[in-house]
């Protein structure tokens, strides 16, 4: 089954087109990456899927159902998003417990105490973190909370917008391992936005390369191993990311 199907998707902000004619399918259980530089429109695609960028034309289908032009509670049960900056995406005056419980309350889900406990365990947070505020957590711990908040609703698709680019490399490794394990355990579908090609190589099955609002190429993530891209922009991005550097080839 197709988890996300985009057909001829155009997205605009206040009349200015930022994404043009994007067509792609993400299969259920797949980990799919959208890569490109700032302004390429990759995050905007995620926003359109969740109804946060309402000015779109074309078609968006999530698990076979057409998406709305506004945030939709039914859709939120199956599609959740994790943002780049855990400092900005958690309410500073709500405890971890409040953040997680609220998500459950909004969707009228019972058995909250047990669910919160379980999801914290799932993302590798000790129970002593449950009643802490965001400022009492490190960057990596906050991102774990943000992932827990998305996961607590038991969605089938996670939209990940640069989930590790605000983190140190050693913390990034922990979060990437966590995301990989969660996908396997919960059979999740990932649509990951990033500018970091090695992260794609570690996390994803396929990758769409975006440039100036268009998808210029869709390739298997294995193309990152040999740099075999069709499009000249893709090759340029690959080279700029150190794809051809001798240090990489040596495998270090």
């Amino acid at each position: 089954m197709t988890a996300i199907a985009l057909r001829g998707l155009n997205i605009a902000y206040a009349g200015t087109p930022v994404v043009r004619d994007v067509t792609l399918d993400v299969a259920e259980g797949e980990s799919f990456a959208l890569v490109g530089e700032s302004g390429s429109g990759k995050s905007t695609v995620l926003k359109a899927i969740t109804g946060l960028a309402p000015e779109w034309t074309g078609s968006i289908e999530v698990l076979g159902r057409p998406a709305a032009h506004h945030p939709d509670r039914k859709l939120a049960r199956v599609v959740q998003m994790v943002f780049q900056d855990p400092y900005g995406s958690l309410h500073p005056r709500k405890t971890v417990d409040a953040v997680l419980t609220e998500a459950l309350a909004i969707h009228g889900i019972g058995d909250r105490d047990a669910r919160v406990e379980a999801v914290l365990r799932d993302v590798g947070l000790d129970r002593r973190f449950r009643f802490r505020y965001p400022h009492q957590l490190s960057g990596g711990q906050r991102q774990r909370v943000a992932i827990a908040r998305a996961l607590v609703l038991e969605p089938r698709i996670l939209l990940l917008d640069e989930p590790t680019s605000a983190l140190d490399v050693s913390v990034q490794a922990e979060i990437l391992n966590l995301l990989k394990r969660l996908r396997a355990e919960h059979r999740l579908t990932y649509l990951l936005v990033t500018h970091n090609l090695p992260v794609v190589s570690f996390m994803c099955d396929r990758v769409a390369i975006m440039n100036r609002g268009r998808v210029v190429e869709i390739a298997p993530a294995a193309a990152l191993h040999d740099g075999e891209f069709q499009d000249s922009y893709s090759r340029q991005l690959y080279a700029a990311s150190g794809g051809n550097s001798p240090m990489e080839s040596a495998g270090r």
């Binding site: 050693s170 490794a173 391992n177 990989k180 190589s201 990489e248």
Partner: peptide, 20 residues
């Protein structure tokens, strides 16, 4: 060594990244 190993590589084949 730990920092170097934790960085994902372009030709990544490891199932899991070593953490510090």
């Amino acid at each position: 060594r730990g920092l170097l190993a934790a960085v994902p590589r372009m030709r990544e084949t490891r199932a899991e990244l070593p953490t510090l």
